[in-house]
């Protein structure tokens, strides 16, 4: 079932980076994720490329197929259309940016096939 949108995507939410620095969610940059993952002993940043976007079972949901990491593992997630992903070099992006902005006041680009999103895996999995 689709994942409900958690509260930390609301504009103004305070996010703590791995080095302790605090930033607002709307001010996060690609480097913040990369540097935080470099500090982390457990988490690793992966590049996840959007391969397909299909409608979900719920009219407000979409099924996004990602190609994850160097191994290009195929992973599908079903999320609400307003769920934002962080695209490398671009920032927050969702399948329905108008709805994300309306609900969370978070400025978003349109998430498209070919976009490369920030995702996490466990270092121990490798």
């Amino acid at each position: 079932s689709p994942v409900a949108l958690p509260p930390f995507f609301m504009r103004g939410s305070i996010i703590q980076l791995a080095d302790g620095e605090l930033k607002r969610v709307e001010d996060l940059k690609t480097e913040d994720f990369i540097q935080s993952a470099e500090i982390s002993s457990e988490l690793k940043i992966d590049s996840s490329t959007v391969e397909r976007i299909d409608s979900g079972q719920n009219p407000n949901a979409v099924v996004i197929q990602f190609s994850v990491g160097e191994l290009k593992a195929q992973v599908c997630v079903e999320v609400l259309v307003e769920y934002p992903f962080f695209v490398f070099g671009q920032g927050w992006s969702s399948c329905c940016p108008d709805r994300t902005t309306q609900l969370f006041e978070l400025s978003c680009a349109k998430l498209c096939v070919g976009d490369v999103c920030v995702s996490l895996t466990l270092r121990s999995l490798r």
């Binding site: 509260p7 935080s36 593992a73 992973v75």
Partner: peptide
């Protein structure tokens, strides 16, 4: 004011062993 860890914002996309 609640403070959220950076990694809560990022989807955890773990490849499965099958497929």
């Amino acid at each position: 004011v609640p403070v959220f860890p950076w990694h809560s914002l990022v989807p955890f996309l773990a490849p499965t062993q099958s497929d």
